[in-house]
Every structure is written in C-alpha cells, then in structure tokens.
Design a protein around this nucleic acid. Structure first.
Length: 283
DNA sequence: CTCAGTGTTCAGTG
DNA sequence: TCACTGAACACTGA
C-alpha cells in the first residue's frame, strides 16, 4: 500500500540493508511501461559498480544516491514494493529491478500492476514529479494558519485537497479518510469553509496518524484498534470499532469511506470557538 | 464476467 | 489562466 508511511518504511529498509555497499550486478525486467524513460539496459549499466551513499524520500517518491552523480528514482504506484532478501529462491513475483549487493544480498523493486515508475535523474529534487510536490507531513510541519491561507475561497471538498500532492505530499486515500474521520470533518466540506478549530484538528491528526504509521513500520496489524482503517476495505465491513455506520461515496474521483454520524459539517467545537472569538473581539 | 482499487497525469469544462 | 473534475493507464482479485 504505497502511501507515505510505506514508502518511508522501504526507504529505511534500503538505508539499513544497502548503505555503503557496492552494486556488483543488476537484474532488470524488459518492461518499458515501468521503465518508460530509460531503457532497462541503460539503468543496469548506470548502476553496476556504484556504491550506495544515501537514500531519500519526499511524498510517495524515494530515490537512491551514489558515489557518482545521478539518482535512481522509485515510484510505487498502486501496487509496488521494495524487498530485501538473501536467498534468490524466495524472490517475489513481478520483479522489475534487482540490485545485487557486494554482500550477496538483493534489494528488489517489484510492481505487479505496472502503475509506477523507475526513472533516472541527475538530481531527483529537480525531477518533474518531485519538484512539484508540496510539504511532506512527515518531514515538514504543516500549520493550521498556513492551511487557512491556502484555503481562502477554495471550494473543492477537503477530501480532494488532501489527495493533492502539491498540498500534502505523500497523503493517499486511506490517510486522507483517516484524518477526516479522526478530526470529525465531513469530507465534502469546501476547504474555505473549514473553521480554525477544524484546521488545527486536521493538521494535528495528519501529523499524528503518519507518525504512528511510520512508527509501526506501516504494519497495518499494529495500527491502533480505533482507526477507521481496519473497517474501510470491502463492502461488508460497514461499522467502525465504535459501532458507527461507514458510508462509501466517490469524492474527488476516489472512493471515500466516512462516518456521517461523526463527521458533521459544523461540529460543536467550531461553534464554541466562534462564540469565544466573538466574545474576545467584543471585549 | 464485471468492476473497483493504496496513484498520477492529462484533456476538458466553466 | 485558474480551479477543478473525470477518464485513462495495467493488472489482480473479489
């Protein structure tokens, strides 16, 4: 499930297993959809003999830097993953790129559904998809005040804005739904109509959820029991741990799982805050 | 057999 | 131009 937390977990895997090692050989698949800009043979030629110096991530993109200029960019799309193993007999299916390291172990990128890209760039930070990314909620702090500025007069539903990588790099469909559920915000709410208390709750939950997901290495079995996540897949799992009914609806072109009973347009917290503000203004 | 899906991009609309 | 929507992409599994 390649959203921010999964990609960060894979970056750490690469960091732990491959840092400082030299690539002795490279195996590539003949796949000109995943490797759409550079032929597999060229990627292999570029990589062979290089030493891995650092690993990086922004949003759902990760890249590896070497002892010579040129970055290897990995994007996982809907179904990709990164694996590390020693025994070639246990190789996963649909491997697209395998880096064989000087200790004999293998760092492997796979992508069964082929929506995802392996690319090469002199400087990944300047590469087209990465350069356009907004703040990453794990690397950067996103403040409620900044959001309030961004959202003035914006009418798109908050659910759709959360999926916008130029606003929240790395947030995907389940993280967006989880944030809205935990901060009790109706996913249809136009961005510009969100109150200050809602924006504070949203930013706090955004950081907390991602922090937790990374902390447990994106292992969903270790996500807190109260999360909507455990109940949002499939059609029959229609109730949260609290017994609330889950609604499935398309918003911003994606299926949104939400709980109308809990996620109201104008929650009590906002009313309270507006009263407090008008009181303090009038005194 | 049909359709939705953890993501991104691009054509099209107002 | 801008803000936004929806289809397309490739494949798997329910």
């Amino acid at each position: 499930m390649p959203e921010l937390a999964e990609v960060e977990t894979w970056r750490r895997l690469a960091e732990k297993t491959a840092l400082g090692k030299t690539i002795t050989s490279v195996e590539t698949a003949e796949d000109r959809i995943v490797m759409d800009q550079i032929p597999p043979e060229e990627i292999a030629r570029n990589l062979r003999g290089r030493r891995i110096l650092s690993t990086h991530r922004k949003g759902k993109h990760m890249w590896i830097r070497f002892d010579q200029p040129g970055d290897l960019l990995l994007h996982f799309g809907m179904s990709g993953s990164l694996n590390h193993y020693r025994n070639p007999a246990v190789a996963p299916t649909h491997e697209k790129l395998v880096l064989v390291l000087d200790d004999g172990s293998r760092l492997s990128y796979r992508n069964p559904r082929r929506i995802g890209k392996i690319r090469w760039h002199e400087d990944a930070r300047l590469a087209p998809p990465i350069a356009a990314l907004g703040p990453d909620p794990f690397l950067d702090t996103i403040s409620a005040d900044d959001l309030a500025q961004q959202f003035v007069r914006r009418k798109r539903p908050i659910k759709s804005a959360l999926l916008d990588q130029s606003l929240f790099a790395g947030v995907g469909n389940w993280i967006a739904d989880e944030v809205l559920y935990q901060s009790k915000i109706d996913p249809h709410t136009p961005c510009g109509e969100l109150g200050p208390a809602q924006l504070r709750s949203l930013t706090a939950k955004l950081h907390a959820i991602i922090q937790k997901a990374v902390e447990v290495e994106a292992d969903e079995t270790r996500f807190p029991k109260t999360w909507l996540f455990h109940h949002r897949w499939g059609k029959q799992a229609e109730y949260t741990a609290r017994g609330e009914r889950i609604c499935f609806e398309t918003i911003g072109g994606r299926t949104c799982a939400w709980v109308p009973e809990r996620q109201k347009k104008t929650p009590p917290t906002r009313r309270t805050e507006e009263l407090m503000e008008s009181n303090s203004n009038s005194t």
